[in-house]
Simulated scan of single mutants.
Amino acid sequence: MTVVFVHGVPETDEVWDGLRARLRGDSVALRLPGFGSPRPEGFTSTKDEYVSWLEGELRAFDGPVDLVGHDWGALLVARVASRGVVGLRSWAVDVASVLDRDYIWHDAARLWQTPGAGEAWATQTLEVSDLGSPLGVAGQLRAAGVADEHARVMGRSFDETMASSILALYRSATPNPFAHWGADLTSVTSAPGLVLHPTHDPYDGGPASEVAAALGARFCPLEGLGHWWMLQDPGAGAAALEEFWANPER
């Protein structure tokens, strides 16, 4: 069994390090193009390009994998699972509420989606090189609930490429992902799924259980944890995933 992890925004694959260290078996954490890694030629960082990129990465593995996504990674994983183009053994996501038809993007997302304002944010944030400053991306991650040690690690990868990738990705999902993908976000029959719901996640406060039911996925609350549950309590996250993988069938 190989487990493949997909991170979110503005993050890098290091977000999974602690959880992966607590797992038995092989795992790989992919790094999204533009997030501390180069973008392929002609890649413009739209949500559908990231889906195609992820499907291409998964084809390189020998056999179906257990696919896990967080934040934007979760949205990409749900889309890949619903398309059924690539075979999966199982899939797991958080922030399922973002896939609801009535979801309204959070304040930072709306800023990034706004022409002019998003570019101003990028310029101002890129000017801050001090990882301890509250104005840099590391400081913004800390303000959102990421512990300092993890915020500094991920903040080191923030550059012009990541900034432009963030703006393009969010602008490709206006007004919300359901408006673009909703018709295909029905019960996934190709592989069993799991929706993780950290109960203190401010970005996932909507009908996550209803989205899980619509996708035909198992629903698993993570009591007392927030958006970065894999950093707050990697042991609890690993245990929830391994319990699902031990008996993934619905």
Rank of each mutant, 00 (worst) to 15 (best):
M230Q: 08
P192N: 06
L215P: 15
R83F: 00
A120Q: 07
A144K: 12
A183D: 14
M1H: 10
G145P: 05
G216Y: 02
V86A: 04
E242Q: 08
D71G: 01
A214V: 09
W121M: 02
E243M: 06
V146C: 13
G226V: 14
G206D: 10
W245N: 13
T189W: 03
A147P: 02
S129E: 15
G136L: 09
A109Q: 10
D48T: 09
L32D: 14
E149I: 03
A213C: 03
G136S: 10
L131F: 14
M230Y: 13
P33D: 02
G237A: 09
E11G: 02
G73P: 13
A217S: 14
D17I: 08
P40E: 00
E243N: 02
S97I: 08
M230N: 03
H227W: 01
V68W: 09
V188A: 00
L196V: 05
E57H: 03
F158S: 07
F5V: 12
V28F: 10
L241P: 01
W181T: 08
V98W: 10
V146W: 02
R250D: 01
F244Y: 00
L185V: 07
A96G: 05
M162Y: 00
M230C: 09
L75Y: 15
T125G: 10
M1I: 11
E210C: 11
L135G: 13
A213M: 09
R110E: 09
D107Y: 00
V15M: 12
S190W: 07
V3A: 12
R31K: 04
S129H: 08
G216N: 05
H70D: 06
F61A: 08
G136I: 03
P33V: 04
R110D: 04
A117K: 02
V65D: 06
A217M: 13
A208K: 13
V6D: 08
G205T: 10
H7M: 07
S97T: 05
E41S: 11
P234E: 04
Y203N: 02
E242R: 14
P175C: 03
V137Y: 06
G116M: 04
W229S: 15
D71Q: 07
E242S: 15
